[in-house]
Design a protein around this nucleic acid. Structure first.
Lengths: 290, 290
DNA sequence: GTGAAATTCCTCATATTATGAGAATTTCCA
DNA sequence: TGGAAATTCTCATAATATGAGGAATTTCAC
């Protein structure tokens, strides 16, 4: 737990930027169609065709074609008054993901057992390529407004749940990240070069857990990694307390608690065999970074 | 509540068929790309490019292009071992929908108040064009395994939450449905022709609530409609009990309870002004049937 | 770290198909 | 039922997605 300093400006980065890679040639109509969905945010939940025409600078007929394709697929629905909103397909797919995810079958009882000891909140985070997502929360302290419910995205480089996953990625993936995202790594205070970065990650790995407070300054999160297979990190368990409820001498205790619980989840995960093992389906594995 | 009979075979219809309309010309690549996502089910959560090539009968390079487009958008993620699974974007979009949906801000406290009186379970269902989706459940009786958690789709023509929404749609939408989905309506026992259908729907509308047991035979659901605007039904509240806990003489009581709560939710919904009323955004309205 | 095997991406010619403008049709509310 | 608004259709044109095979990466066991 040495000196992993975070001299980052506290920009909240609510949504990581869509991984637009302008240098890479890509089928444009697909990208354009899918890009429409990005416009539908909680702040701008309803879009009319007129608004889309103006925003996208496309012909009216084209916008209608796009919108219809998305409606047919259930990604948009028409609402009264010539508007469109995000469709039911996202809700259904989220359920599909929940149903297929072994982590969500294994972790909840473990987290429930911890609830009283933690006396704060718990967060289960999953590794998704370049980002980490909260997938489950378990809150007891009503003073903790984590607003970290399922679906909240985090950068891979900020917050203890993310960083403890990052630190446990295989070496070649860390090297990839250092090559492709060196600037973000440096900005996050994780090292100015590959060697520094590697050593910092190793330090976190050796401690086993990571305590940090760089997302919500009033809270402290103590995270431990979860492995789908030996050496294959795929998630993390984060114990959360308000800072005044987490005196320094308790950090190690909470860290051990997190590590033990995460190891237990990892073990059950590795013994887990999905209910539908009939097909020639590969076992559910861990995300790759690109 | 007269004689709305349901002589339907109990086919569970887990997922309504994707609204494929082969007669209608549509941009094909978009459809093909989005269609890939349909392959990712809880039973077949992991697909390799090889499997996709065989399934789709497309060139390897094309499949890679499709998959990359979907990965770039976050709808798929690469996992170790050359596989792909549904990506984080669905989880994020589901959260976006939750955050933007006034219903999910208003209904939970109302449902919490009802919890002890209902002494079973409650289901909040939303109307999405041709289907109805469970969006929230509140369960107290542990014997009720509704498996109706958020995201479970229902046909618009089966189950009391769906039918009570159906019955309260505006006349011209009912006529549309009778024209385009007459067979399903007849199969669901809702009427052999437009006049029968219209009368059946009017009967449900006049009763105010609908009790039925056609989804889970061991349970009974008592549903009342929720309106986003006068005359614009958009959701329903369904009170659930096991059959032995719901003697006939209590049905009317539960029906009144559902109607009262649904009316309260409707009223608050119509008074609701979203937090982000800055833009020239239309107010969040109700789905249309096509 | 290193190297072999597997996965992923790129290049390019060709033919498919998406696009835009405006007309025709359908929807929906008074 | 009518009429304004929303949606879809038609068609010529230009853009771009496709497939095949080879090149470049990535992965993972040693």
């Amino acid at each position: 737990m040495d000196d992993i300093s975070f001299p980052v400006d506290a920009s909240p980065s609510p949504t990581p930027p869509a991984d637009a890679n302008p240098t890479r040639r890509v089928d444009t109509s697909i990208t354009r169609v899918l890009g429409i969905l990005d416009l539908f945010t909680p702040e701008a939940a309803v879009w009319t065709v007129d608004m889309l025409v103006e925003q996208l600078q496309l012909a009216r007929a084209t916008v209608y074609r796009y919108v219809r394709a998305l409606c047919d697929a259930g990604f948009l629905v028409a609402v009264s008054g010539a508007g469109y909103v995000l469709g039911p397909r996202f809700i259904e797919f989220d359920r599909n993901i929940r149903l297929a995810d072994p982590l969500l079958q294994i972790a909840p009882p473990v987290m429930a057992e911890l609830r009283d000891t933690v006396n704060g909140g718990q967060l289960l985070c999953a590794f998704y390529g370049l980002r980490v997502l909260s997938v489950l929360e378990d809150k007891t302290d009503p003073n903790i407004t984590m607003s970290m419910e399922r679906g909240r995205p985090f950068s891979l480089f900020r917050g203890s749940p993310s960083r403890v996953i990052l630190a446990n990625l295989p070496t070649y993936q860390l090297r990839n990240l250092a090559l492709n995202h060196g600037k973000e790594i440096a900005q996050a205070g994780l090292g100015e070069n590959w060697l520094e970065f590697r050593d910092n990650m190793r330090a976190i790995r050796r401690t086993g857990y990571l305590a940090a407070s760089d997302i919500d300054k009033a809270l402290i999160g103590i995270s431990a990694p979860i492995f789908h297979a030996p050496g294959a990190v795929s998630a993390s368990l984060c114990l959360v307390r308000t800072k005044e409820n987490a005196p320094p001498e308790q950090i190690a205790f909470l860290g051990d608690l997190a590590v033990t619980a995460a190891q237990r989840i990892s073990r059950e995960l590795q013994e887990f065999r999905p209910a539908h093992a009939d097909r020639t389906t590969p076992a559910f594995p861990v995300s790759r970074v690109r």
